[in-house]
Amino acid sequence: MFALMQSARLESLHLSVDPVTGLKAVIAIHNSQFGPALGGCRYLAYPDDESAINDAIRLAQDMSYKAVLAGLAAGGGQSVIMRAPHVESRAALFEAFGRCVEQLDGRYITAIDSGTSTADMDCIAQYTQHVTSTTAAGDPSPHAAMGVFAGIRSTASWRLGSDNLEGLRVAIQGLGKVGFALAEQLHAAGAELLVSDTDAGKVRLAMEQLGAHPIAPEALLSTPCDILAPCGLGGVLNWHSVAQLRCSAVAGCANNQLTNLQVGDQLERRGILYAPDYVINSGGLIFMALTHQGAQPEAINQQLLRISERLTGIYAHAQAEKRSPARVSDELAKKMLYGE
Rank of each mutant, 00 (worst) to 15 (best):
S89A: 03
S51G: 11
A56N: 06
Q129C: 12
V26D: 06
P140W: 05
H86F: 10
Q296G: 07
E11L: 06
R204G: 09
P230L: 08
T198A: 14
P36A: 15
L194Q: 13
L38G: 10
L10I: 14
Q209N: 12
L261C: 10
T128K: 03
A96F: 00
E298Q: 15
V250I: 09
S241K: 04
G40Q: 01
V328F: 01
M121C: 08
I53K: 12
P230N: 10
A216C: 12
Q126F: 00
V242L: 09
Q262P: 02
D265E: 12
I53H: 11
L305D: 13
M336F: 05
T312G: 12
E166K: 11
R153C: 12
V279N: 06
L285T: 13
K24G: 08
E309F: 03
T132K: 02
T291P: 06
E268I: 02
R323S: 13
I124A: 00
Q103M: 06
D62S: 15
G115M: 03
G234D: 09
G235A: 12
A45S: 14
A67Y: 06
P85E: 06
L205E: 07
S79R: 09
G252Q: 01
M207H: 10
I112S: 03
A191T: 03
Q129T: 10
S51P: 05
Q262Y: 07
V131Q: 00
V87H: 05
E309K: 04
C225W: 02
T312S: 14
P47W: 02
A137R: 04
L245Q: 07
